[in-house]
Design a protein around this nucleic acid. Structure first.
Length: 184
DNA sequence: CGAACGATTAGCT
DNA sequence: GCTAATCGTTCGA
C-alpha cells in the first residue's frame, strides 16, 4: 500500500485494513482486527493535541505510530487522514502466516493462536520497537499489501478504554480464530 | 516534582 | 473472573 491509501477517516481505513497483509522484516500475516482513533475522540492519544509521545499521529499518513502500553508492550498503529490531524488505526491482531518460528521464539509460545491475538502480542511477535515510530509503511522493514476482499466484517466497541464506549470503531474478520476477543 | 493512569497480558482462582 | 506487573506520559500543584 502507498501513503495515498491512508487518507480516509480512521474508521474507514480501519475497516479496509481487515484482510490486508502486514509484514515486518519478513515476519507477519493477515490483519484480522483493528481499532480506529481520531482527534475528536476522547479515547484517542491525540485527543488533547500533539505531545512528544503522539507526535507521529500528527505526521504524514501512511507511517507508523508506535507507543509503549502499560510500560510493558509495544503497540503498532497506522497514521491516517492528513498530516496534522492526529488519526490512526491500532493493529490489534493478525493471522500469523510468515516467520512462524521467529514469532514463536520472540513470544516464547508454540500455540499459533496466541502469537498475534492482541496489540501487545502483535508488537512482540513482529519485533516492534520505538525505532519504528514514524517510519514509512511502504518502505523497509514494513510491507503492507491491500486486502483482496471483500471480507465479512464484525464491528463493536473498542477494548480497554474508559471513554467513548458508544463508538463502535473496533473491526474484525468475522469468525477468525485469531481475534483478541470474540465480537458480541 | 509528585502522582495517577493507562488503546495489555499472563497467570491464578 | 481478578489482579499483579511495570514504567512512560501527562497533568496538576
Amino acid at each position: 500500500m502507498s501513503p495515498g491509501d491512508f487518507l480516509g477517516d480512521s474508521h474507514e481505513v480501519a475497516r479496509a485494513l481487515i484482510g490486508a497483509m502486514l509484514v515486518v522484516d519478513g515476519v507477519g500475516g493477515r490483519i484480522v482486527e483493528t481499532e480506529a482513533y481520531d482527534r475528536e475522540d476522547p479515547a484517542s492519544h491525540s485527543f488533547s493535541g500533539p505531545t512528544p509521545r503522539n507526535e507521529a499521529m500528527f505526521g504524514p499518513p501512511g507511517r507508523a505510530y508506535v507507543y509503549r502500553s502499560y510500560g510493558i508492550h509495544w503497540c503498532l498503529n497506522f497514521v491516517c487522514r492528513e498530516e496534522g490531524h492526529g488519526a490512526g488505526v491500532l493493529i490489534r491482531a493478525i493471522e500469523p502466516l510468515l516467520g512462524l518460528d521467529v514469532m514463536r521464539e520472540r513470544r516464547g509460545l508454540e500455540d499459533v493462536r496466541l502469537l498475534c491475538s492482541g496489540p501487545g502480542r502483535v508488537g512482540q511477535a513482529l519485533g516492534i520497537t520505538r525505532e519504528l515510530n514514524g517510519k514509512r509503511l511502504d518502505q523497509s522493514p514494513f510491507q503492507v499489501l491491500s486486502a483482496a476482499g471483500p471480507f465479512p466484517i464484525a464491528m463493536g466497541p473498542r477494548i480497554g478504554i474508559s471513554k467513548a464506549m458508544e463508538v463502535h470503531w473496533r473491526f474484525g474478520l468475522q469468525g477468525s480464530p485469531f481475534l483478541s476477543r470474540r465480537f458480541a
